[in-house]
Amino acid sequence: MALLAAIGSGSVIVPDGCDVETRYHCAAVVTDPENASGRTLVLDGLRHSYVDLNDPTHLQFRYVKAYAAAVDAAFPDGRPIEAHHIGGGGLTMPRYLSATRPGSRNTVSEIDQGVVDIDQQHLAAELGDDLQVRVEDGRLGLDALPAGSRDLVVGDAFGGVSVPWHLTTVEAVEKIHRALRPHGVYALNVIDRGPLAFARAEVATLMTTFDHVALASYPGALAGDGSGGNLVVLASDAPLDTSAWAAQMTSRDVGWSVIAGDDLRAWVGDAPVLTDDFAPVDQLLTPY
């Protein structure tokens, strides 16, 4: 099968042309008019990452704040962790972890060398022992991770607004599960709207492998009002402190709610489990 994965996620904007034509993207870096050191990485008209060149702890997108809230809820404050990131974008989360948890080590699978070049040349990324980027497909990169070697895996790989199907399946999830330590957490960004059929299927898929799963997003989206956008899913074999996660998001003014347990199982309903033989991601997604 062909294994292709573009990176990142965000809302739609229209850039004034491309700063760089990479192998996969029309890429632009846009300065934040309200923050002189703020930069937005735009790939094919989508805002994929926000980076503050002077402050790696500044998180702009709500779903990235939800990631940070999940990390602080799951791991003791300031403790170094070992993380793997499926999708690089502007390397916002790896840089955040390095800044807030000194001694943390981050590896990143990013398929587009052009994006890595932009990170270094325009977004002040400094690669080294604590931040290693591998130009590779995200799923193939999982095979190179030693079993039980990561505290955290972050899934943030997108082609447009769709997660590449081969990263959504039970087989892919099992590779992530293998790489995590017993207390480890998989944090996944999903974009969907309307009936959220893809989001429900992805949660159902995670539930086949992990003992504990929780979901956060806009309260209206989870209540079925037809809205949508980003949803963040956490999965772990260790119990997830959803109250702490919600409190951390509140402190960051995210404004999202969390569901887990029986409420999440009821929300998932009879959604299909995605496999390498059956992963109709494009058909399940509600288009924007």
Rank of each mutant, 00 (worst) to 15 (best):
A99I: 09
G88R: 04
A266D: 12
A271N: 02
F61D: 01
T208N: 09
V133M: 08
E34G: 12
A66H: 01
A221H: 05
V232G: 00
A216S: 15
D192I: 02
L231K: 01
L140W: 09
D276I: 12
D55K: 04
L231Q: 01
V163R: 02
E174I: 02
G155H: 11
L97V: 09
I118M: 09
G141C: 12
V115T: 10
W267F: 04
R105K: 14
R95P: 01
T31N: 14
Q248F: 02
R39Y: 08
R62A: 13
I13A: 13
S149K: 08
A201G: 01
A99T: 08
V14T: 15
S217N: 06
P94Y: 08
P195D: 01
V115H: 00
S162P: 02
L91A: 12
Y96S: 05
Y96I: 06
G194C: 04
P15Q: 13
L41G: 07
P15Y: 11
A246S: 15
S227Q: 09
P94R: 03
R181D: 00
G229P: 00
L284T: 03
L46K: 09
I86V: 15
E110D: 07
P15R: 11
A179Y: 05
T92F: 04
D263Y: 02
V268D: 02
Q120I: 14
D130G: 03
H122M: 15
A244P: 05
D119V: 11
G141V: 11
D16F: 12
R139Y: 10
A221V: 03
A83Y: 05
W165N: 07
G8C: 08
D156G: 11
F61Y: 14
K65T: 03
Q60K: 13
V14M: 13
A204T: 00
A246C: 11
T107H: 05
A172W: 05
Q60Y: 14
C26T: 12
H177V: 01
V133Q: 02
S236K: 06
T22V: 08
C18G: 00
L4H: 14
A144P: 06
S227D: 09
H212M: 07
D72N: 13
A271H: 00
R134Q: 13
A74F: 02
A244C: 10
A260C: 10
F61M: 13
Y24E: 11
M207W: 04
L91E: 11
P94F: 05
D143W: 10
D137K: 10
D32C: 11
P239M: 12
G138I: 09
G194Q: 05
A223K: 00
A238M: 13
H58G: 01
E110G: 06
T208L: 10
G8I: 06
Q60P: 00
L196D: 01
S243K: 14
A83Q: 07
A201W: 02
